[in-house]
Nucleic acid binder design. Structure first.
Lengths: 155, 155
DNA sequence: TTTACTGCAAAAGGTTTGCATGGGT
DNA sequence: ACCCATGCAAACCTTTTGCAGTAAA
């Protein structure tokens, strides 16, 4: 731990910016539980622990934390962006249940190969890939409550 | 063509809703060029052709068109959602250049296998997957203008 | 005739920004 | 001392909603 903070401090200094207690608090909170989050949730978590941080500061710092490769956007849902810590985690993707919201993280070896194939085929330098798989988890398939009613014109 | 309109009309009727000229206009415009779009762009395209559609109607209809499986959300960028027509198109994913915005569509056979593997492994019923790959296209790699400066703590 | 749909304008909700103050370097 | 970062509040922008009139069924 603490490692993320060191990286971020170095990143900030290299850019000629300033290391502040607020920046450290934010990083610390994000990596304290290491789970997906959104701005409002992070803000409340911090305030509940006595921090005097403002949402503006969180919004202003998120782009920096992303550029430092410590977090990334994962999906946009319910009208706002969701993020996840990525430092230290192996790369992974998500399986999300549309009924109950459960998130299953996975990594499939094949994806690396697909990526290499794409780089060659299109002469493209890949920075990141985001695979978001949605559907119904085993539990929700059983108590079929039907909510979305998808129509399919399959072929 | 026109086929999308028939499907949508049937879908609307089956739900006990009403087929209106506005709904037909929207579908027609979306499939007239068959490309990615966002609400504002679609609105302007329609108005420029003399339509008297309102943005509210577009916003109210998009969820229905998605449920009818004619379009889907592709990514959230610049503060708003982007969509693409999917009826008639084979399933595909995107390679997006972060510098110039170029979008390359592709499909890799392997992804179907990954999906099947996930369904088995997690007993999950997959409805859709969205693979969004970002990086630099060949052209932008050459005239290296450096804009994003990504830091990597690779291992 | 019933009631869903439309356009308009206002509201809502997430994110950004201007400003005065405070604090790294 | 310089000037970047912060908190606050206002502004901004996309999306949603209330309403009164219109038109499918």
């Amino acid at each position: 731990m603490g490692e993320e903070i060191d990286l971020f401090r170095a990143f900030i200094s290299k850019r000629g910016l300033r290391n502040t207690p607020e920046r450290e608090e934010i990083i610390r909170e994000i990596f304290s539980c290491n789970d997906h989050f959104d701005v409002d949730e992070l803000y409340l978590r911090m305030r509940n622990k006595g921090s005097r941080i403002s949402k503006a500061s969180i919004y202003r710092n998120i782009p920096l934390i992303m550029q430092c490769n410590l977090i990334r956007e994962v999906w946009h849902e319910d009208g706002h962006m969701h993020y996840e810590p990525i430092y230290g985690q192996g790369h992974h993707c998500h399986l999300r249940c549309l009924k109950c919201g459960t998130v299953i993280e996975f990594y499939d070896e094949e994806l690396g190969k697909v990526e290499k194939r794409l780089e060659r085929k299109f002469d493209f330098e890949i920075i990141e890939h985001r695979l978001d798989v949605t559907g119904h988890c085993s539990e929700c398939r059983d108590n079929r409550t039907r909510r979305g009613e998808h129509v399919s014109h399959d072929k």
